[in-house]
């Protein structure tokens, strides 16, 4: 099971992570293959305008967007 950590700190939540979270939770294609974990502000990784932050496996995505996140999950699941 691939772990997807989604930061839900105020910055990250406002800049798109709430939508990424909702999308992954509802997605039927990755169902049973990924484990979505909601995290509270991961050591301010978002500082210097890098919000939102998503960590897939051990890889951090800064300025995460849905397409970036889906692409990396797809790669990691190969």
């Amino acid at each position: 099971m691939l772990k997807v950590n989604i930061c839900s700190g105020t910055q990250c939540a406002f800049k798109g992570n709430l939508e990424i979270l909702e999308y992954l939770q509802e997605d039927s294609i990755f169902k049973n293959k990924i484990k979505v974990v909601i995290k509270n502000c991961m050591d301010k990784a978002c500082r210097d305008d890098k919000a939102p932050v998503v960590i897939i496996g051990d890889e951090k995505i800064f300025n995460a967007t849905l397409d970036k996140v889906l692409k990396l999950i797809e790669e990691k699941l190969k």
């Binding site: 839900s8 700190g9 105020t10 910055q11 939540a13 406002f14 509270n40 502000c41």
Partner: peptide, 14 residues
Amino acid sequence: LAAILIAMDIELAE
């Protein structure tokens, strides 16, 4: 409101 919180660097979780 959220934009104001972010402009003031307020983290609600804290």
